[in-house]
Each structure stands twice: as structure tokens, then as C-alpha cells.
């Protein structure tokens, strides 16, 4: 008898717990599972996205996609920008967050200002950076020649040696504000008493950073890193606003390729298979990051 009520309580308890995830689950099931299932289904067909007829090709689209060197090249391009973002952008975001986390003069001002680039519209960003990088009348070339470095002047976005990096720089400039506020929120969540305690124990500021800040911030670091990877790998509108994927294939990224297949050449099924491959790659990368964070946390 007692056991039964216990079981009942346990059951009720678990059901209650489910209640917490239910609203999210319903939305997810409706608006995610069906579309993704559709994408999966279409990826098995040769289909132009218009005709009533589809032609079943099994894994043919995936085979084509995996063997397509331009697709992997676009993946590598996005990977390169992601690498830049993971290192430089996040380092800058962390540095700024650490500085602003202290009580410094004008802290509030900086806090507000650093979040401005993400707020800016893509059109404005495109116009301004095109003007900076322009080969003839660009600001960058103007400054370089003023500094006596006129030899370095070039059409920055049209030169295969610089195009991808230049796009990466715009992306990082635009994106560091995101990392900045997440990191700042994380830093603010660290109880100040912990710093005090460490200071009383005689730790200097570097010691406090490595012994107090870093261990507590690891989950937030991982969060920011995963978001950086996901956000950067899916870079798209910036490419369209600056280089359109050119010159040649030097700044093509996965999303531009998927759209080129879908709308450009009307290979809808193929585009779906690209999307799925892309999703799986992102998934694997994110999972590795999460696993790493767990390992780090344990040590």
C-alpha cells in the first residue's frame, strides 16, 4: 500500500517535471520536426521545387554533395572565418568584458557602445565596409598611402589573398558585441565574495583570474564558443553584401552554396541534402565542444 502511494507520488512528480518542458516540446514538435522531416524526405529525390513529379534517387544527392569539391571549399572558407572568430573575436570580447566587469570610469558608456555593431543593419554595414575596402577611393588605401605604405594598397575584397580575411574582419567586428554581453553576464554572475576571499588568501589579479574566474566561467566560455561556431559557419548576408562569394569561389560559404543549388539551379533535393550534411557537421562540432567542456569541468 505504502509502496503504491510512493510510486504514485513519484509518477506525479515525474509528470510534473514533464509539464515544465511541455510548452517548448509542443512548439518544437510542430514547427521543427515536420519541416526537417520534409527536408530529409526531399533530399532523397531529384526535384526542382516546382514540378508535381519527383524522382527518387536514394542517396544519390548525398553522393553528389560529398564529392563536390566546391562545397567542401565553401565549408573550409566558413571554417577559416570561424577560426578567426573563435580566436580573435572571442579574445577581444573577453578582454573587453573583463575590463568593463571592473568598476572603471565610463564603464556604462562602453557597455552600451560595444553592443552597437550587432544592432546596425546589414545594409549600413555593407555600405560602410565596401567604402573602407574599395580599391580606388577606399579609406583603408587612403590611410595606407598617408602612412607611406601605398604599396600595400589594393582592392581588398577583390584580391583572393585578402578577400576572405577582410570579410572575416567585418564579421568579427560585427559579432564581438554578442560574445561581449554573454561573457559580461557570466562575469557578473560570479559572487564578488569569491574575489574577496581569493584576495585575502593573497592571490594577485592573475591568480584570481586563473583560479576563480576561469573555472567558474567555463560553461559560459563553451556557450560562447558554440554560438560563435554556429553563428559564423552560417554566415550569409555579409557575404552577399560584400563579395557575393567571389572573386571566383574564394568567399563562398555553405549557405550561399545551398541557396545557389536551391534557387540558382533549382536542384531542390540536392540543396536539402547539402543542408543536412551541413547540419550534421555543425552537430558533430558542437558535440565535441560540449564533451570537451565536460572534461574541462571535471579537472
Amino acid at each position: 500500500m505504502k509502496l503504491k502511494t510512493d510510486n504514485n507520488i513519484l509518477l506525479k512528480d515525474t509528470l510534473q517535471n514533464y509539464l515544465f518542458v511541455l510548452p517548448a516540446l509542443i512548439l518544437f514538435a510542430t514547427f521543427y520536426i515536420y519541416p526537417v522531416y520534409k527536408v530529409f524526405e526531399l533530399s532523397l529525390f531529384e526535384y526542382d521545387g516546382i514540378s508535381p513529379q519527383k524522382y527518387f534517387v536514394g542517396l544519390g544527392n548525398f553522393k553528389d554533395a560529398l564529392g563536390n569539391s566546391i562545397w567542401w571549399h565553401s565549408m573550409r572558407n566558413a571554417g577559416y572565418i570561424t577560426f578567426l572568430a573563435l580566436t580573435f573575436q572571442n579574445a577581444l570580447a573577453l578582454l573587453l568584458a573583463l575590463i568593463v566587469d571592473r568598476d572603471i570610469k565610463g564603464g556604462r558608456f562602453y557597455r552600451i557602445v560595444f553592443y552597437l555593431p550587432p544592432v546596425l543593419s546589414g545594409i549600413v554595414i555593407g555600405l560602410i565596409w565596401n567604402w573602407i575596402y574599395d580599391g580606388n577611393y577606399g579609406l583603408l588605401n587612403h590611410w595606407l598611402s598617408a602612412l607611406g605604405l601605398g604599396k600595400l594598397a589594393r582592392a581588398w575584397l577583390a584580391d583572393p589573398k585578402t578577400a576572405l580575411t577582410c570579410v572575416g574582419i567585418i564579421h568579427m567586428w560585427r559579432g564581438f558585441g554578442w560574445g561581449f554581453i554573454i561573457l559580461l553576464a557570466g562575469l557578473q554572475n560570479i559572487p564578488r565574495e569569491l574575489y574577496e576571499a581569493a584576495r585575502i588568501d593573497g592571490a594577485n589579479s592573475r591568480g584570481i583570474f586563473t583560479r576563480v574566474t576561469v573555472p567558474l566561467m567555463i560553461p559560459v566560455f563553451v556557450l560562447v564558443m558554440i554560438l560563435t561556431v554556429l553563428g559564423t559557419m552560417q554566415i550569409y548576408d555579409l557575404i552577399v553584401a560584400t563579395t557575393g562569394g567571389g572573386p571566383g569561389y574564394h568567399t563562398e560559404v555553405p549557405i550561399t552554396r545551398i541557396l545557389a543549388a536551391m534557387i540558382g539551379s533549382s536542384r531542390f533535393g540536392y540543396a536539402c541534402s547539402l543542408g543536412l550534411i551541413f547540419g550534421v557537421v555543425l552537430l558533430i562540432v558542437s558535440m565535441i565542444q560540449l564533451k570537451l567542456s565536460k572534461l574541462l569541468k571535471q579537472t
Binding site: F28, Y34, P35, F278
Partner: peptide
């Protein structure tokens, strides 16, 4: 988490149908 990782371009039209 996976929902963050599979990009939307492919599922746009499916969403409309839904």
C-alpha cells in the same frame, strides 16, 4: 540543441506548407 544547427534555407518552404 540540434534546432540551432540545421540551417533554415531548406525548411523554409516546408514551413509554409505546414
Amino acid at each position: 540543441l540540434i534546432t540551432m544547427m540545421i540551417p533554415i534555407p531548406g525548411s523554409f518552404i516546408a514551413l509554409y506548407v505546414l
